[in-house]
Structures are given as structure tokens and as C-alpha cells.
Design a protein around this nucleic acid. Structure first.
Lengths: 342, 342
DNA sequence: GCGGACGGCGAGAGCGCTCTCATGTGACCC
DNA sequence: GGGTCACATGAGAGCGCTCTCGCCGTCCGC
């Protein structure tokens, strides 16, 4: 088992097929400009020897790695509490795989890791990077931009306004929030509250913004900041009920928060949706479908987001040198999913 | 930005420091056998030029990549429904990072991907592999063993009995299950049921086994097979109640299943734990703490599992050629976490 | 004070591949 | 039928690194 047989080289294949290394290389890389009988002979030699190109040697000369780093900052916070990143990863993985690219996963925690990541990127091990950074003040994105590696961000970076050449993919958080709140208003609710996520994350800020845009005109603004977790949702809801007992609708910043909200409402004997209507955000299936009552929520296609991020990056990589790439964000639409809670 | 400055090479550093390439190489790789003043001069040149070694060139000659593949088979099934893999990934990532290894993530779906993964591994892009394969009949593990890449499995592979040189890390599913059921028996319950996971997964099979070992002596075996999901738990619990209305305890194969179980019990007006005691498995915090009532469950340290897998693999890689490695499994203990449901 | 051992350093080969460029071969045109 | 061109193929350089080897200077032992 540890007797790893020496892997065949281009040379070996060439010898077996009776051609030159160059020809084998051509065949292996698509076979353009090689006549059919030769192609066939080379293919056969490749099969017989079980030849697989040595990526290191190839990278050395092409300066291409066909690998992309996926950088997820501060996993502890949130990543692993909900399937959000997992779904994105799946989307990314599918797209990368379809284009024969590898996915190098970098999870970072804290400042020490930043230097490591920066070094890694600067080291030119990967052709590009997909970056998830949740917090406004995260220095990581800056470091990455500095490393000169083509990058696509997941979620609108907070500082993206100043730097126009930033490429990102995000859900239409504002629009989704507006839709959610409009639904509640359309149901005749007049005291619509919002339990937000941590406002140093753009997704939370944008959802709050959407809420404001709709409610600002018609009713009182009732906002409690929370943290995207069920426990946080509970705490926020209790506070909200104490402060404002006559609330008749809640737009929660995400489904996890909404699940906490529902629990508190049940505990306090408020009927949902009769007394208080509740809308979530994400449409995270295991959560939204399992709440009692099932949750009306704003769906975002997370896997698709991942896929698009990867696609954008790969396209950018193909066009290396063209620059002239406009940059900017891609904002994906959300859809309202009506269940029983509103 | 697309004006990527040509990265400095060893040669450049050597020139600047006034030494040979070989000496720079020595310094960069630890500096053994180089006298202090020279080391200093080289270090300085490295810093000034911002030199980072070209990994491709290095790999080409060392045949080391300092990269490990993490292969997760069939993500759709389960991976992303619960934070299980995410936690393992975190553990793996930490350990790999600590040893300057990269994590290449390969998610596979269906048979076509198997060939791709096999090719990738055979291609020698990575030094080793960590493999999660849930199902007994999955051909992937075989392919991987065949590729001759050092591998550690997550969870006991179903076929591991025949092949002694398989290395894996698993939780003590049997022992944990025994402990759970003993608790229930200790509470005086006499009609203890088990809602299992899919029995083509060893974790599910082992938990069932543990249940059998304890209940077999004292009470009737009441088993319904399910699928590790809340919905599956609901269905199984309904079936169980119909078939055996006097059940007074349920050991669910995991927390997600248990959450479904609790929902059905509430719906049918059975009090937990008074009428029916419930124990889960995993201690998945967002689930176990949020159920009503909070779930008594068997905790496994999933992140630690990941960390140990990585550690085992790295150790194996260091010892390359030594063989004589015994192989076999590492089984991590579980602990019972008492909450309100039993 | 001289021979040998030893340790620091440089020269150079070569890892496996791609890619340019030269060369060879056949088709095609007048 | 000879010249031309297009295109298929081979020869060879070189990507950036590691590592062996040999040289040379230093230090020790006798």
C-alpha cells in the first residue's frame, strides 16, 4: 500500500504511443491540431498507463491552479448554527466542479488567521477567492483586495459603496423585507414590529431598511435589535411585548429569530396569526416548515447565490487581463412564501 | 489591479542577499545548517521583496502538497439539514491549519462524481483524504482505498470489518445508546421504543444495536426505522403510537428525530416526560435546547471528531513509508446530557 | 605543524509539464 | 510539375524549486 508505484509521466505516455511529449500534451489538453489516428493512439496509451497529469508541474508553467479559495470569516458566530453556508458551499461546489475547479476551504477565526489567509492568497495557490465576511468592520476583505486576487464577495460588503470595483452577490434583502411588511400591512396590521439581526451585518441592516421604507409612511417604527438566533428572538420578543403590548405583527429578521418569536407568543397566549401575525426571512426549510404554525417567510435561494458567486468569479478569471470588468453587485430576487403564520 | 507584479523568486532573493539559491531555500525551510548572519541577511531580503515560495514548484520536486481532501458523499441527504458536517469541518480545519495544511473540499453527488473524485485523488493533488460516507453500499470508499491515498474515515465504514487496515474515527454510538436506554429503564419505563435512523448507515445501526443490547433482556423490542429528520420522526412516532399506544419511553436516533417525536406527543396530548420520556442523540444545541421540553440527549463531540480525524491523517502522512501503522478505529466516548424530556 | 574530519555554502541537475519555434509533410494552385 | 502555403509534429527551453554533491575553509588530534 505504501508501495506507491511511480506515476506515469507525459514522457512515458509519449514513448508508449510513439509520439513526442508535445503531442501527448496537446491531446491531453483537448487534442486540437492533432490528427485523429494519433489522438486515438495517445488516448489509448493514457488509458493503459493510467496517466493523470501532474497538476503541480502544469501549474508551474501555466500559473493557473484551477482552484478557488472559499474564505469564511468567523465561523463560530453563525456559520454553523444554520445551514446557510452549507447551502452556499454546495452551490459553489457544483459550479466549480462543473468547470473543473477545486474548492479550497479556509475558515478563519480571529485576527491571527487573517495574516495566514492573506499570506495564502498572496502565495498564489489559488486563482481567485470567494469571501464571506459578515461584519462591517472586518479587516479581512481589505487584506484580500490587497493581495490582488480576483475576488467575489458573498453578501454586500459594508464598505462596498466607496470602492466601485467590488464584485458581490447578495439577496434583495431590502426588497424582500418590503414585501414582507407590505403583506402584513395588507392584512390590516397597524402596529408592525421588526426584530432585526445584528446591525453591523449588511443583511440585517438592509432588512431593517426595507421595513423602514414601508412602515415609515403608515405606522410607528417598532424595532428591537437581536442576533439571528432563536434565543435572541425570544428575548427580543419578550422585550417587545413588554414595551408595546398591542403589537399585532412581527417581521423577524430571519426564520431562526421567528421561531423564538413564535415560542414566546405561544407562551404568552397570543394566537398566531389571529392576534399577532409573524413573517420570517430565509425560508430555511427545516425551521420554517416545522414551526407551529408553519412560518410565512421570505425565501432566498441560497444555493443559487453560491452558484452565481462561483460563476462570476470563474468568468472573471477567464477574462484575466481584459479588465474593463465593471464590477458591482448582483442582487438576487426573493419570493414571499405564504404559510400559516401570516 | 490586473497588473499582477511578477512575484519574486528564490533567485531574486538570493541575488539581493548575495547568496546562492540553495542557501535561501535552506533558510526558508527552517534555516538548519546556515550560519546566523547569513540567515539574517536572507530573512531580510525575503521581507523586503515580499517573497512567498511557489508551492507548485515546491510540490513538483517534493511530491508533497500539504493539502488534504475532505470528501463528503451525497450532501443532499443530510449534510446540510443539520450542522453535523459543518462542525466536523471546523474541527478538521483547525487541526489542518495548525499544521499548515490546506483543506480541499469535495462534495459528491451520485455516481458520476465518484469517478471524478477517484481521478482527483489518483492525480496526487493531495497528500491524504478524510472521507465521510454514510451508506453501507457506497462504492466511493473502495475507490478511494484503491487510489492508494492515505485515508481516514469519519464514522465506522460498514465494510470495515473485513479490511483491518482501515482507519476511522467514530463516536461510541453503541455505548451512547446503551446509556440512553439504561436511563429510561432506570426511570422505571418498561415499554421503551427506538426510532432508528436509516439502517444502512452504521451510526444508525450501532445505535439500534445498543438499544437492543439493553432492552433485549428486560422488555419488548419496539423499533421503527426512520430517517434522521424531524418529519421522519413525526411519521415514525405516529406509527408507533398507533401500533403500541402504551409506549412509555422513546429513544430517538438523533435530536432532529426527537423533535418530531415531541411534536407528535404534544399533538396527541401525551405529557413529556410524565407519560412518555424521550431521549435524543447528538446534543445538537440549536435543536436540543429549543425543543419543548428541552431534550435529554446523548452528546457527541463532533468538532473533536473532526480534529482527531485530521490529526490521525497527518500523523500517518508524517510516517509515510514506515507503514507498520496498525490501522483500526478510534471510538470517542459520548456523554448523557440530562434535560427535561427524560 | 600537518592530515583528516566536518560543516557551511554554491553549482547544477532535474521534478513534469507547456509552449514556442523549427521542421517536415501533404494539398493545392497556377 | 514546381512552388507555396497550411497544418501537423517534434525538439528544446524553461517554469521555480529542492537536493545531492563537491569544494573549501576551519578546527581538531597527534
Amino acid at each position: 500500500m505504501s508501495e506507491t508505484a511511480p506515476r506515469p509521466t507525459l514522457e512515458a505516455v509519449a514513448a508508449r504511443a510513439g509520439v513526442s511529449r508535445a503531442t501527448v500534451s496537446r491531446v491531453v489538453n483537448g487534442g486540437d491540431g492533432v490528427r485523429e489516428p494519433l489522438v486515438e493512439r495517445v488516448r489509448q496509451a493514457v488509458d493503459e498507463l493510467g496517466y493523470v497529469p501532474n497538476q503541480a508541474a502544469r501549474s508551474l508553467v501555466t500559473r493557473r491552479h484551477d482552484a478557488v479559495a472559499v474564505i469564511i470569516a468567523e465561523p463560530e458566530t453563525r456559520v454553523f448554527a444554520d445551514p446557510f453556508f452549507a447551502l452556499q458551499l454546495r452551490g459553489i461546489s457544483k459550479e466549480l466542479t462543473a468547470h473543473d475547479n477545486q474548492l479550497v476551504l479556509l475558515l478563519t477565526e480571529g485576527r491571527d488567521d487573517h495574516a495566514r489567509v492573506a499570506r495564502y492568497l498572496a502565495g498564489g495557490h489559488v486563482d481567485g477567492a470567494l469571501v464571506f465576511s459578515l461584519h462591517l468592520d472586518d479587516p479581512l476583505p481589505g487584506l484580500i483586495q490587497g493581495a490582488g486576487v480576483p475576488t467575489v464577495f458573498g453578501g454586500r460588503p459594508g464598505w462596498s459603496d466607496g470602492t466601485p470595483d467590488v464584485v458581490y452577490v447578495d439577496s434583495d434583502n431590502r426588497g424582500g423585507a418590503r414585501e414582507a411588511v407590505r403583506l402584513l400591512a395588507g392584512l390590516g396590521r397597524t402596529r408592525i414590529a421588526h426584530i432585526s439581526g445584528p446591525l453591523d451585518q449588511t443583511s440585517a441592516a438592509d432588512r431593517l431598511d426595507g421595513y423602514r421604507q414601508v412602515v415609515g409612511d403608515t405606522g410607528p417604527l417598532l424595532v428591537v435589535e437581536s442576533d439571528f438566533t432563536p434565543g435572541g428572538g425570544e428575548r427580543a420578543m419578550r422585550e417587545l411585548l413588554d414595551r408595546c403590548p398591542d403589537v399585532d405583527a412581527v417581521f423577524a429578521a430571519n426564520d431562526l429569530t421567528a421561531s423564538g418569536v413564535l415560542r414566546v407568543l405561544r407562551e404568552r397566549g397570543r394566537r398566531v396569526p389571529e392576534d399577532v401575525a409573524v413573517v420570517g426571512f430565509d425560508d430555511m426549510l427545516p425551521v420554517a416548515e416545522q414551526t407551529d404554525p408553519p412560518l410565512t417567510t421570505v425565501r432566498q435561494d441560497i444555493e443559487e447565490m453560491g452558484r452565481i458567486m462561483a460563476r462570476l468569479l470563474l468568468r472573471r478569471l477567464d477574462r484575466r487581463g481584459d479588465d474593463g470588468e465593471p464590477g458591482g453587485g448582483v442582487v438576487l430576487p426573493t419570493t414571499l412564501v405564504r404559510r400559516a403564520s401570516a
